[in-house]
């Protein structure tokens, strides 16, 4: 991983280290509700990323003139502006997707990821850093939603993006379409993600110990 203050890290941290879904456990409402199919997941992730990037940029640009007492209200106004744009664009150009996502597009306004990044990052950092951070978080959200919706879609309807993958003889597991399926899948994904990061850390620690031991042995030899 890149060092923690470089521009590349600002982008990369959203993918794994601080992945909004897997690590920060933010934005659970759209994550659980709309991931019935991959198309929905991608649509939701792109809409959220659009709002996230532009609201972070604007908030970062005017961060010095927003009075501290009314900052949350100001963020909500800025976010709501972009959500309205996203909502109307989706309704005009992708009416089916807009219908499938339903109330979850207007609900992006109260998505914790966006408000969280605005409060925790954009209001304290330069516009360019905020832009990279927002893009990274958006990509992380996108990855999480695509993985989750991919698992759910393939098990419940044997398809991915509408293309049949599993043979006809496979009996679809309908529970995956239901909310229960979303909770089970997300819980298992959390488990796998935590297991992976714990084992990564352990390997890192072992490497450091090994280096230390080797150095000491060399010194003893000398």
């Amino acid at each position: 991983m890149a060092k923690s203050n470089t521009f590349t890290y600002e982008y990369l941290k959203g993918l794994w280290d601080q992945n909004p879904v897997m690590k920060q456990v933010l934005g659970m409402c759209p994550t659980l509700a709309v991931t019935v199919s991959v198309v929905n997941g991608i649509g939701m992730a792109l809409a959220t990323t659009f709002v996230l990037v532009f609201s972070s940029l604007i908030i970062s640009l005017i961060r010095k003139i927003i009075p501290n007492q009314v900052r949350i209200a100001s963020y909500i106004v800025i976010i709501a502006t972009f959500v309205t744009i996203a909502d109307y664009v989706l309704r005009a150009s992708y009416p089916d997707l807009s219908k499938a996502l339903g109330p979850f597009i207007p609900l992006i306004v109260v998505n914790c990821i966006i408000l969280g990044r605005a409060e925790a990052f954009a209001s304290k950092n330069s516009p360019f850093r905020s832009l990279l951070d927002a893009l990274g978080m958006g990509t992380g959200f996108f990855i999480a939603l695509v993985v989750l919706s991919g698992i759910r879609e393939i098990l419940a309807s044997k398809t991915i993006l509408g293309i049949q993958i599993l043979p006809d003889s496979f009996a679809p597991i309908l529970v995956m379409i239901l909310p229960a399926g979303a909770f089970i899948t997300l819980g298992l994904l959390f488990g796998i993600a935590n297991f992976y990061s714990i084992s990564l850390e352990q390997r890192k620690r072992e490497k450091i110990i090994k280096k230390y031991v080797d150095n000491n042995q060399e010194k003893v030899k000398e």
């Binding site: 009996a171 597991i173 309908l174 529970v175 995956m176 239901l178 229960a180 399926g181």
Partner: peptide
Amino acid sequence: AFLQASFP
């Protein structure tokens, strides 16, 4: 319960 929800 899983079977009931999956294969009604």
